[in-house]
Design a protein around this nucleic acid. Structure first.
Lengths: 217, 217
DNA sequence: CTCTTACGATACTATACGTCTCGTTCCTTT
DNA sequence: AAAGGAACGAGACGTATAGTATCGTAAGAG
């Protein structure tokens, strides 16, 4: 328990950012907010997650540590929110699954190669098995990110390109799996050269019902 | 530089474990060695890598911290060695690629479900992008682990089951990718039900040259 | 103009890594 | 059997970081 005497205690508390300040007083600086998120991302690129320190973020953003902890309860949610600000994958509706996949997967490669995504994803994934609340935080973001792919598969079913009983989540795992493995275990730039191979493999398999929901008996 | 005055300093140093003690004196306890590795694995299962502490390992193993640092220069190599002690995936040579994959992938599921592998791999992978020396440590172990799969693919090429220009590493990534994604983002037990789907998908794609080394134009 | 809150700064507590030094134990050599 | 040397468990120590608490100040709301 802290001393009952508190001078400038926060009222909004470290709940979800943007929690409305209940009443008058100096409003939270939107500028500081952005500076913190920007500093987090740029430091992630430079030093990686494990070497990321809150003091380093505060210093680069030009804010005090308390200003960070006033908005995020710990380092992890901050990184998760910064992660959510990274560019999304491209939406593609070209009329055919093959060309949709080509567009989408190439945007995966582009995003992985030009943002800290490749560094952040493994770091956060490594925490998942033992941090259920991070799971709650992270799952919707991951789900959101794969929507373009899910929607492309959905349209392919409607066009009759792949079997109607295809398990969309499993199919999506199969399509992005190879790329994900490379991102995790082969740090460095991802070559766009693997995209055609991934598409050829996935397309053939999917058309033949390789990801049918009932395949597992 | 330490003080020149040293009472009971180690001579073998923290090099590769098993470095021969050069001369007389009390030999290193093999019992302590195993207790440390076992404690490392069991703690990994319980608290995960990020919450793993050397002091905790020492306490559970019933040894002093110095006994750990006498063998491993830091926490990372210790974890990597403990990781290397996990059971390998099954070797399968049944005469056909489909049945080989079935055996191998089912052993993947079994190992993931009965050992801490699913918790350790994401944790370590998360450190990779910004820790080159862990990369050097970890890469050979990972390579070793996928040999049964690589050999099965190699035999499939010799039998003419898949195109001779198949890129073995890429093909292996494609086969284990979906399962890996699920291990990383969906903690919990892996269902063997996805194995047939994975095989159907991969096999079709591979036979048609989906992982040809030249596919990328 | 005043009140309230956020601000940057910084001291503080707690924890962990990795180093070092104890006194003790136990194997090897003579 | 005796002596010596190295590893042993224990834990103090220095450094670094997470996260908390408190300062005096700045700034918007009423």
């Amino acid at each position: 328990m802290p001393t009952p005497r508190r001078a400038g205690a926060e009222r909004a508390g470290p709940e979800a950012n943007g929690g409305p300040q209940t009443a008058a007083g100096r409003p939270r600086s939107e500028e500081a907010h952005r500076a913190i998120l920007d500093a987090t991302l740029s430091l992630l690129v430079e030093v990686g997650y494990s070497a990321l320190t809150v003091e380093g973020i505060a210093q680069r953003a030009g804010v005090g540590k308390a200003t960070i902890y006033r908005r995020w309860p710990s380092k992890l949610p901050l990184v998760v929110e910064a992660f959510g600000d990274l560019p999304a994958f491209e939406e593609a509706d070209t009329g055919g699954l093959a060309s949709d996949l080509d567009r989408i997967l190439r945007s995966y490669v582009r995003v992985y190669n030009t943002t800290p995504l490749g560094a952040v994803v493994p770091s956060l994934a490594g925490e998942l098995p033992h941090n259920p609340q991070l799971m709650d935080l992270f799952a919707p973001v991951v789900k959101q990110r794969r929507q373009p792919l899910i929607r492309a598969l959905h349209r392919a079913i409607e066009r009759g390109e792949i079997p109607p009983d295809t398990d969309l989540d499993l199919a999506a795992d199969m399509i992005v799996g190879p790329m994900t493995v490379r991102v995790f275990f082969t740090p460095g730039k991802l070559s766009p050269k693997i995209v055609p191979a991934m598409i050829a493999l996935a397309l053939d398999g999917l058309r033949r019902g390789g990801a049918a929901g009932s395949a597992g008996s």
